[in-house]
Each structure stands twice: as structure tokens, then as C-alpha cells.
Design a binder for these strands. Structure first.
Lengths: 248, 248
DNA sequence: CGTTTGGTTGATGTATGTCAATATTAGTGG
DNA sequence: CCACTAATATTGACATACATCAACCAAACG
């Protein structure tokens, strides 16, 4: 968990790190291993745990009564998810493992007690939701205004940034593993899998990105960013910059 | 601020009410009156206040560099907004008044201090973000999967419910004022204003809802709910499972 | 090896966008 | 209260991005 100092309040850095540690300290059970495709939280069920994702990819999914499916959020290692458990009885969405995954979890009641007792932990949890909200805002913009091409470019860049963030704090990574199938990508993007396929083909033919074998290879990052550009948040000063490091 | 006991944890009711009162107690300046169309928070600016909306409608808006516009959230009286100010330096989106509005506000630093000192207030703030997140999830589903008709039906019902919630706690209200222009509705829904117009005409001709004069009149609520149904969150009652099992 | 799952491609349909003109309503100042 | 203007709403003709349907192919996999 790290954050961009142009965006986030730098005075929180310490509290966030302490909150993160406090979270880990509360974990009592050993981490759980969950295979790809498994459901961590079934949709509509009562649920009493909050999770931290240690490795692998996980997604929040909503299935409509008539079968349509929308992915609402993709979580990457370091993310805390289902913080909502502290506030709601039922999770209105399922959470599923996109790849083999390792998570640790805490009972919501224990966590809520600690939340009340430790402001740093409260800050860390609230920060996580705030961060999710930011991503959701971008998501809404993407779905509401973006063309298929823009949405795809955007999501591929977002993944790259978020992954790089953790590993290196660098600009983004040009190649990364991405367990989503084209079908799932469609459900993330609100597009048909065949349309996803066609757009990916075009991007590949134009030598911008290729997505093959669960691997994304960005060949022409500037071009990709140009495509995604209108959807970036905070069109701030110079250019869409890297997310920078934080946290010791 | 009230909540659904089928969804929210009942044990929080007290803390939420206390947190709400704590928020009000922190307000030092008299409420501010803001005229329709005014910008409360400009996009991309540094901002240091958290607000509570006392009356009127307010929205969070994102303007893309090429002019496209997406509304990200509509706030109704009772909502606390810009809680994010406690965590981020810059607001990536503008917040504008959709109607004449009255708000009270608190400096983020004072609020953050109180947040750290008073778990009930922290709970209230975090609850608000959680609630926003829930709405955003529904929003993403709506944009990603809904047809124009479904989205419109859904948004009209959501407004009705949220308004009724506050006033009566009842089911929803059949008639209410709604300051959004068709153009703005389009920016909320990710649709063209002319398409919004056409769909509204159809709904009016079918005697389901009419939107005229900044007033929404629901003539056939069951029909409207039937249209919006697939997009509702939390297929609450027992079943709804359906999503692939597979845990090991 | 056959079966499955995911990917690729074509032909065709449709919901929604675009462009553009006209009507209506809402302000505004005289 | 009227005349003028600017917003907003309405409608039509036409364009297109994306969906749908339906094959076929290529890895992955037991």
C-alpha cells in the first residue's frame, strides 16, 4: 500500500503504515490459499470477514438475475477488501479468485473493535475505501464516456500502474501477467467478448499492446496512453505522471 | 441519514447517530447558501473542507479534457460529501450545485482530528463512504449492463427512494422535484440528451413516468420497477446464489 | 488423443449517437 | 404585461459502434 503524494495527504503516510501493520497484527489465522475460480464471498450472503490480499488477483462481481455479469472491482496484492463487512450484514456482490490466491482475513467484529480503538487503523481502512472510490469514479467515467478502445487501453494501463506501484514504485511495467480471460475482460468493461477480441486484435496489429497467454505486453506505451488519456483522472499539470512511492 | 436494517449492521445505528451529531457539533460557521449552477469545489483544485448537504441537490462531476462530461454522484440532503478531503489534497472532480443549496462545512483538519478522537464520528464518516461506494457499484452495473431504458428507470427510482427515505422512511415517493435537465441526465447516464428525451417520451406515452417541469411523476410504479429490476442491488431474499461454485 | 475452454473471424442486426431544424419554456429588461 | 433572448425540449433523417449469431480454430488438459 503506497500512495501518490501529489494526490494523497502526505501527513497521513505514517498513520497509514501503522494502520497497515495494525491490520496484520490482528490476523490470527494463517493465510488461506484459494484456487483460481473459487468464490471467496458468495453474492447475497451474510458475511463477517475483512480480507487482505497477499498474492494473486481477486474481483468483486455482480450477477444480475437474468444472467448478465458485471465486474465491479479488481483487487491486486496489498489491497484490503470487504471492509464493508464492518458496516453491512450482506455482501450484495460476490468476490471471486481470478487466479490462485493467498489472503489473510479478520473477523469484522474484532476489526471493528480495533477500528474504534486505534485511529491509525481506522484511517487505514477508510483510506482503502476512499481509494476504491477513486477507482470506481474512474470506472464510471470509463463506462459512461469511453469508447471500447479507450476503455481497454485504460484498464490495461491501470493494471500496469497498480502492479508496478507495489513492486517498484516505477512508471508502470511493460509486461505483466493478467489472469482475466477475454470473456471476463468483457464483463469488466461492459463489452461483448467478441468485441473485446476485435479491439485487442486492432491494438495488436497496430503494435501498441498484445494480450496473449494471460500476458500483457505493452509495445508502445505512449500510444496506449494517448488512447487512454481522456479517461485519466486528475488531468493535472504536466502529464499523466507515475504514481510515486510512499510508505517506508 | 437512515439505513436499511436488512442491509446495514443494526448494532451501528447508535454510533451513526452519535457520529452525525458529532459532525454537526463541529460546524463552526453558519450554513452557506449556494445558488444553482455554482461550483462548490472546482475540479483539480486543492481543497480542505468536508460538507454536509442541508437542502438542495449537489453533484460530483468530471469533465474530460475533450469536453465530455460524466456525473459521478448526485448528493441529496443529509449526505456528507467530500469526506475524501481528509485523505487527498486535490479533488479530481468538481462538485456543483444542481439547485439552490444550503450546506455546512468543516475544515478537513479539524474533522480529521475529531475523526481520530471519536470512533462514532469515524464510523459515521466511513459509513458515508461505504454508502457512496454502494451507489457507485450500482452505477457501474447500470452503465456497464443496462439499456438506456433500464438506466433511466433505475435512476428515477433511486432518487425517489433516497428522497422518501429521509422524509418518511417509506417505500418511495410518487412525485418529486428533480432539478436535472435532460442534458445533465444524459451526463449522469452516459447517454445523449436526445436519446434521454426519446426514452422519456416512450415512458410518458406508456403512462409509466413523466418528467416535466423539473418534476418527476411516477404513474405506474410497478411497471417502472419492473424495468429497473435487473439493476437492483442485493437480490436479498434467500436465494440468488447461481454464481459458479467451486471452492476447494 | 479427444474434450474443453478460450480465442478468432465473418455476416448481419440494432440501440444509440450525430446532425440539424423547430418548438417550447423560462428569464430579462423595458 | 409584453417583447426579446437564451435555455431547454422535441422530433426527424441518417450514421455507426457495438451486439448477436454462428461457425471454426488453437491451445490446455486430463
Amino acid at each position: 500500500m503506497s500512495h501518490d503524494h501529489r494526490l494523497h495527504r502526505p501527513e497521513l503516510t505514517g498513520a497509514l503504515a501503522r494502520g497497515d501493520a495494525a491490520f496484520d497484527a490482528l490476523v490470527s489465522e494463517p493465510p488461506r490459499r484459494v484456487p483460481a475460480g473459487a468464490t471467496l464471498i458468495p453474492q447475497g450472503s451474510r458475511h463477517d470477514y475483512v480480507y487482505k490480499l497477499l498474492s494473486g488477483w481477486v474481483a468483486r462481481v455482480r450477477q444480475l438475475p437474468d444472467g448478465r455479469t458485471q465486474y465491479l472491482m479488481v483487487f491486486l496484492p496489498g489491497d484490503i477488501f470487504a471492509v464493508k463487512s464492518m458496516f453491512v450484514v450482506q455482501q450484495p456482490d460476490a468476490v471471486v479468485a481470478l487466479s490462485d490466491v493467498v489472503v489473510s482475513r479478520i473477523d469484522q467484529q474484532r476489526l471493528k473493535a480495533a477500528f474504534d480503538a486505534d485511529p491509525a487503523l481506522a484511517t487505514r481502512c477508510t483510506w482503502q475505501i476512499t481509494e476504491e472510490e477513486r477507482r470506481l469514479h474512474n470506472w464510471v467515467v470509463s463506462l459512461g464516456q469511453g469508447s471500447a478502445e479507450e476503455r481497454i487501453a485504460y484498464v490495461l494501463i491501470e493494471f500496469s500502474r497498480r502492479l508496478a506501484h507495489r513492486d517498484a514504485g516505477g512508471e508502470g511495467v511493460q509486461q505483466y501477467g493478467m489472469p482475466l480471460t477475454q470473456d471476463q475482460l468483457g464483463s469488466v468493461l461492459g463489452l461483448t467478448p467478441v468485441h473485446v477480441n476485435r479491439v485487442l486484435r486492432r491494438l495488436r496489429e497496430d503494435e501498441i499492446v498484445s494480450v496473449r497467454n494471460r500476458t500483457v505486453s505493452i509495445h508502445d506505451l505512449p500510444a496506449l496512453e494517448r488512447l487512454a488519456h481522456p479517461l485519466q483522472d486528475a488531468p493535472m499539470p504536466g502529464e499523466a505522471g507515475a504514481l510515486t512511492e510512499g510508505v517506508a
